[in-house]
Write a protein that binds this DNA or RNA. Structure first.
Lengths: 282, 282
DNA sequence: CGCAGATTGGAATATATGTTCTATTGATGT
DNA sequence: ACATCAATAGAACATATATTCCAATCTGCG
């Protein structure tokens, strides 16, 4: 009867819980591990949500949550939840006060949280602007171009490289043929060599614009490849080459720019193309 | 009929709620006032408790709580409670539900701006959580490790690769010796081959953890290289290898995760290391 | 390949919880 | 002091939620 269900004491504090979970996790079956991971990643949700809502979030069955609780020594899920609730109760009483204080303090000292808050603010600002700035029409046009493409080539260098890489990753995950022009071994031109009018190129570049990106985009243009450009200004050398152009204004903190808005847009494009293809019977 | 039960909009945030209550409180009958006072004095209890438990605490009848909620414009007690819960959850009023709804919406409306808004929200939520979650102590320890390093190696594959790449870019821009382990041509192990105790490794991996990243981090550990880990859970296979560990909870939209918080942290680390080196006369 | 035990999904169930309803109490004005 | 109406307590109800159970599935092993 009590084979997997070890009848030990249930953890009483959240820290206990976490330690205990790390200890037994390797021996846990798949779904229980999945639920356990979710619990550690979303402690607040666990504290406040209902079993079935959480089950949906963790993509598990509600009964799995109960079983997990029992495996850890609780009588049922509700007892486990109580641990998470008490954690919430004991959290710094007025934490928004505390955050503000932290923010003030950090300003002048060599406190790295100051930097963190700065970057966080600037990312949040970028995202807020993106929400307002992006036009439905441009999105639709870009999707038109991309959904039609046989292969979507992604181009970006230096700072923008990570966006191009991520786009390639996301598109591939969605089953869309995508190719990253990473210029490894100087083969950038060849990587784009086969692209034609029935493909598409997403080119990403921010000031100072990488000459390599601009050059390759020009070649693509000449080869008749439709181009979607993500850049930061209408004056960008990429602007004139674009069939569809997105201008992203990222706010910066110090001399570093957030990339949050750019990533949001990239993910949107990828997923939207995926859905568009799915519905038009790809 | 509707004399006391004003049919106005219910307050949406806790602050609204508080203002509203202070405003109407003088005209409230005895028991309702009693319940209202209890609510303002024990907001955490309200968020977590059940109606009848709270009723006992406030020495009123459960139905009184319902009436109070209705008097304030809510449909029932549960709606009122949701305001208190979102306060605890840190003013992202049931955002996971909201995101799910947005996603559903985006799916059948075919409007890509819905997707964009979803990703934007989810990025904003991630960033908000990052601000709360990151501890000064961990940042300091990470900076200690990194400032001391001769070369900082950055490791990440698949989804996490772009973070590793960006880190390498940013560190190099700041004049810090950094090296990206990109595993091009399968030379990953060799790229890390020379690293020793006077270097450092930043390893980034999220579920599902790339075996390559885990394997290489293990080797680095054996070679005595100090390791800073950025991952998403205490259960990550990287967790045990870390000298310093950051747990980043990115909220996801559909099945795609934002990387905003991760990038914020990465930028913070890079710039903070730069500053630390500058002041200690690098 | 087939068996046994473990694991899981989903329906069925029991319980707990929020809400509504009604008789009673308390207050107000005449 | 009486009549009238709002307010309340507590029971009755409907709903939501956790839990249990069983059949289906997966996994490890002979």
């Amino acid at each position: 009867m009590a084979s997997t269900v070890t009848t030990t004491e249930p953890p009483e504090s959240f820290d206990d819980f976490q330690r205990r979970l790390i200890e037994v996790e390797p021996h846990l079956p798949k779904r229980l591990r999945q639920a356990a991971a979710y619990a550690l990643e979303h402690p607040d949700e666990i504290a406040l949500g209902t079993a079935s809502a959480l089950a949906r979030g963790a993509e598990v069955q509600a009964s799995t949550l109960v079983r997990l609780a029992q495996t850890l020594g609780f009588a049922g899920f509700s007892e486990l939840q109580e641990v998470f609730r008490s954690r919430l109760r004991n959290r710094w009483p007025d934490y928004s006060e505390r955050l503000r204080a932290l923010h003030e303090n950090a300003r002048d000292s060599g406190d790295p949280t100051h930097l963190l808050f700065g970057f966080a603010d600037s990312a949040a600002a970028s995202i807020a602007r993106l929400r307002e700035g992006v036009q439905r029409r441009e999105l639709d046009r870009a999707l038109g171009v991309l959904a039609r493409a046989r292969t979507i080539h992604c181009l970006g260098q230096r700072r923008s490289f990570c966006v191009a890489h991520y786009l390639t990753y996301a598109l591939s995950q969605l089953g869309i043929a995508a190719s990253l022009i990473d210029n490894v071994g100087g083969l950038g031109p060849e990587q784009l060599g086969q692209a034609g009018a029935d493909d598409a190129l997403i080119a990403i570049s921010f000031s100072p614009y990488s000459p390599f990106t601009v050059d390759l985009a020009r070649r693509a243009r000449r080869a008749g490849v439709p181009i979607v450009v993500i850049t930061d200004s209408a004056l960008s050398p990429l602007a004139g080459l674009a069939d569809v152009r997105f201008e992203i204004v990222e706010s910066d903190f110090g001399s570093f720019r957030s990339l949050s808005a750019t990533f949001c847009l990239a993910m949107t494009l990828a997923v939207a193309v995926g859905e568009k293809r799915a519905e038009s019977g790809g």
